[in-house]
Design a protein around this nucleic acid. Structure first.
Length: 290
DNA sequence: CCTACCACCTGTAAGC
DNA sequence: TGCTTACAGGTGGTAG
């Protein structure tokens, strides 16, 4: 599951089901799922056996299971990862990559990932601003707009210094995290900005408005359990979210724009699809210097 | 330093 | 019915 709302849905589920539980067994069924753990799969398991999960945290699209003040298990879902809470006797899913059981003998945690772009690693925690600790591999990720210490003015400032297109900047997780292809298109539609607009040409007020829309659309999506087009995007109980019905542009090529009725178009940008309304979000001539 | 590109995978749907 | 091509909620490494 990918963007902030979907990851937060999973984080909440894990917080409910695994916080306070002690890991009894770790089964790695596909080494690629722990490829980011450089000391290897054996070391990964060894570091987890007998450890208790204190808390489940998130920044942007990254989650981590905090073990203590020094260490955490980073969980990244990539394009197709799922974290599921399953009964002990559940049939292994086709793409089950990692399985944890706990000493209470209750349910197990399954990390399922069709495309294996996601994975887990055990990481040291390092201190960031506001005396907060994050895993080393998450330290380069900016705070997301649902983070109480997120600084809107800092984001607006960074956005406006970028010599690139605004959609590319929205997807840059070092400016603000959590936004992916769906919510970038939805925020741009709400703000009536074409994604190819030079980020540096946005007025402060327009940049603030764009940020507000990004925050609002992700908050609304979270309240609906996230966006699911299929069973790849589900919560820890395997249930889909309902926000796909709240999308105004993403995936709606040739459908009328809910605001003006013109047909939504699809364009290829950064080797992926972008959806926009040609009337509400007119493309302007770029002055990007390259 | 900054920005742009694409490889990394598996599965599905559409086109011929 | 195949076979081929395009595409899918992300990102890290690297080339320029």
């Amino acid at each position: 599951m990918p963007e902030l709302p979907e990851v937060e849905v999973v984080r909440r589920g894990l917080a409910e089901w695994v916080e306070g539980r002690t890991i009894e067994t770790v089964e790695i069924r596909h080494s690629r799922a722990v490829r980011a753990h450089l000391p290897g799969a054996k070391d990964f398991s060894a570091r987890l056996l007998g450890r208790t999960i204190a808390k489940v945290n998130r920044r942007g699209k990254y989650m981590w299971l905090t073990l203590d003040d020094e260490q955490a298990v980073v969980v990244h879902l990539g394009m197709s990862g799922q974290a599921l809470v399953q009964p002990l006797d559940a049939e292994p899913e086709k793409h089950l990559r990692i399985r944890f059981t706990f000493t209470d003998g209750q349910s197990s945690m399954h990390f399922v990932d069709q495309r294996t772009f996601g994975g887990m690693r055990v990481d040291e925690l390092v201190e960031t601003d506001h005396a907060e600790k994050v895993p080393v591999s998450v330290a380069h990720i900016a705070r997301d707009p649902l983070d109480e210490n997120f600084d809107p003015n800092l984001f607006v400032k960074k956005l406006r210094t970028k010599n690139t297109e605004v959609k590319r900047a929205l997807l840059d997780q070092t400016l603000m995290s959590g936004v992916g292809n769906i919510y970038a298109d939805e925020a741009l539609w709400r703000a009536q900005i074409h994604g190819a607009t030079d980020a540096s040409t946005l007025k402060v007020a327009k940049a603030q408005e764009l940020l507000r829309h990004a925050t609002e659309v992700m908050t609304e999506a979270l309240a609906q359990g996230g966006t699911s087009f299929d069973f790849l995007y589900v919560n820890v109980n395997g249930e889909s979210g309902y926000f796909s019905r709240g999308l105004n542009a993403y995936g709606r090529e040739n459908e009328p724009c809910p605001r003006c009725g013109n047909l939504i178009i699809r364009e290829v940008f950064m080797n992926r699809s972008s959806f926009s309304c040609p009337k509400c979000q007119p493309r302007r001539k770029s002055t990007l210097t390259r």
